[in-house]
Amino acid sequence: MEKFGFTLTKARVIDYDRNDHSIVDFIMEREPSFKACIECGCCSATCTTGNFTGFSLREINVLLKRGENDQVRKKIKKCMLCGKCSLVCPRGVNTRNVVFVAKQAFQKFDNYAV
């Protein structure tokens, strides 16, 4: 199809009000420590997976909290659940469970698994 100068692309703005927050609510309920994140990036720095590919738990955390689930869905399956992140988190976030519960949430609220 011919592309014109003005295509209907998804807006760059985070449309907070229209985004779906059911996933983050589910995670916060099952793993309340998720709320304590201050985005220091310790988890992503030490991450075994982040060593090889663009996977950042800090980024995932922010995206989930803003309701930008589509981006997270693609990324979250890359986690190896090794648990290094939970050993360095200065806020005591149970990071491993955040990923585990997030995967569950995607299975529960989306009809297909991550």
Binding site: G41, S44, A45, T46, G50, S56
Partner: peptide, 11 residues
């Protein structure tokens, strides 16, 4: 090893 959180990439 750190994450440059503003660039969004490990550093």
């Amino acid at each position: 090893k750190a994450e440059d959180t503003l660039a969004g990439r490990p550093l």
